[in-house]
Write a protein that binds this DNA or RNA. Structure first.
Lengths: 335, 335
DNA sequence: CCGTGTTTTTGAATCGTTTCATGAACGGAT
DNA sequence: ATCCGTTCATGAAACGATTCAAAAACACGG
């Protein structure tokens, strides 16, 4: 069953292919009666546009790619959901790529996306090493918006949340609750978000003379949080509070603590980061630093289309949101 | 900056485009020295293949699409992760589409995927109304594998878990624990998984003379679970246990109960479905019916590629896995 | 019936690959 | 020198849509 093409439709309707194309793309330019005939033929033959041909001609696809660190992290799915409506209303399609915090996977995705001549790219880069790869795309006139990551000196638009401020918020909250020894759980430190959140935390601890211990993890997931707790509980004189680089880690930590009979928040307080839905839902509801996830996605998409629209004379914009601490049961106790 | 094409590379290397193409696709067929020259030109000009043109010529893309009910549900992300390695090792690319349990969104995705002439499709259909749409793709020689859903009389391969058996497992577990009045929380009932899980539960309740009350929800998410609990707590003589159609709903229910001071499992037991990581991680670890998520994805991909390989003389296969009940704290008490 | 202006339709060129029938170049063997 | 078999390289013909200049069709007043 050879796929039916415009040529077949044209023949069936007794018109030229140009006319069929017009019916599809600028229906107002073709006479009522002809249009009806063509549409009938289309329905009749079950014709469906061939997107590859279309793209080839257009020189560009309608796909906006979003490359995230971890699709299983609700933070990112919410970002994607924020971006989707805007992209779709602009006639685009969203494709989500998961780098899994792995530079090699990220790179493979970028190569593929470049081959696909995507319309634009929203990306949360794994670390700085991807910068030059990302700029290749920019060089190919594919606009790129960095998500959850300040552009720094890179030539891109960006949407970010001030992670250093977020780290400060979390630490200050714990210090105010009377904690004198805090653990930071997260990693790898090459991930900018991790580094920034730690930095904010470190500042506040230094100022307030609070002891800070780092438990580095190989990734930002549930498993990592649980394992870090194992390590922590082995120690004498353990911290009375932990600040986790994101909520998945925090939930893992919560489970680890609970499994070892350590009461939260009585014996160990927890602050997470992202305020995903599961955080409030945990049986010890998690205090967390909230980021405007959906808005992050929405704004990123907006910046992307602005850049596309403005074309040459576009100046990059860097939007920074402020995070907010949501205090819940996991830090409800004053020491 | 007009994108550089094979023609440019050919000119730069002093060969014909055919040769450039060969260097890329069957390097062994071109002389060592020429190949080097071409590769140098490619690197030099920063040439990148144009996938649209390639696809146009090939008549088919390398994309395998996975259409899921809810990307934010870890169950589906795990299914996707199960499928990915196999697809990628076969030189394909995975694209994930979220129907959001909405038939209209699902349909839009199918249309798009058809235009894209995808290599194959793994789909968890929202309900039966999509059957005819899905068969359009089949008619276009695009192999389709149903995921988490028996094929029934539809002409497709499928990978599923016996949801009726799962429902039975859950109900039997609760009945054995001494519960005489159970609530089923989930919906919409048009979703086959919901209907099947309910059916299994209903059977066991009928056999054992257990009272069963249904709290229908508009969707299978966190929010829905919490709201259902609100409704349930309004009643006199409330159930002593709830069986939720999936873990997101169960986690929502858990939070709702906890918020109202209802102790789990002492005053109300909970069984979820899917056994996502968060289930074990909840502060009252959730009993749940486990499905082999990753294997579901892996097998689906396998069936898809088998079908592609076998071509015409392919007979559809319908793989069914058995679910398994994982008992945890949320049902730890005998009444 | 002609000229003019407007609305429709046409058909060829183009996008960048892949494929494949031909042809060129080269090395032996006769 | 000729012939034959390999190995490589070539160039034109698809693939299926979009675009656009030019042609055709039509309307209408004079």
């Amino acid at each position: 069953m050879t796929t039916t093409s415009m040529k077949d439709v044209a023949r069936a309707a007794g018109v030229s292919v140009g006319t069929v194309s017009n019916v599809l793309n600028r229906p107002e330019a073709v006479a009522e009666e002809t249009r009806a005939r063509v549409l009938a033929a289309i329905a009749d033959l079950g014709y469906v546009r061939n997107d590859s041909a279309r793209q080839l001609r257009a020189g560009r696809s309608r796909t906006v790619a979003i490359v995230v660190l971890d699709v299983a992290n609700p933070f990112f799915t919410d970002v994607v959901r924020g971006a989707e409506p805007l992209v779709e209303s602009a006639g685009g399609v969203v494709t989500v790529c998961d780098s899994g915090e792995d530079v090699r996977r990220e790179r493979r995705h970028l190569e593929l996306l470049e081959e696909q001549r995507v319309l634009g790219l929203l990306i949360t880069p794994v670390d700085d090493s991807s910068a030059s790869w990302i700029e290749r795309l920019t060089g190919r006139d594919i606009p790129v918006v960095l998500v959850d990551r300040g552009a720094g000196r890179h030539p891109h638009c960006s949407v970010a949340v001030d992670d250093v401020a977020g780290g400060r918020l979390a630490a200050r909250h714990l210090v105010e609750r009377g904690h004198r020894k805090i653990a930071f759980i997260g990693g790898p430190s090459a991930i900018p978000q991790v580094a920034d959140r730690y930095e904010g935390c470190r500042e506040v601890c230094a100022e307030s003379g609070t002891e800070l211990e780092v438990f580095a993890t190989p990734g930002l997931n549930f498993q990592a949080g649980r394992e870090a707790i194992e390590a922590m509980l082995g120690r004498e004189d353990r911290p009375t509070a932990v600040f986790c680089a994101n909520d998945l880690v925090a939930l893992g930590a919560l489970q680890g603590l609970t499994m070892h009979g350590v009461k939260v928040p009585q014996e160990c307080a927890i602050v997470g980061y992202d305020d995903i839905d599961f955080a409030a839902a945990a049986a010890v509801p998690l205090s967390s630093v909230r980021q405007p996830r959906a808005q992050l996605g929405r704004t990123a998409a907006q910046l992307l289309f602005d850049e596309i629209a403005e074309g040459g004379d576009h100046t990059h914009r860097n939007v920074v949101f402020q995070p907010e601490l949501i205090a819940r049961a996991s830090t409800a106790l004053e020491l």
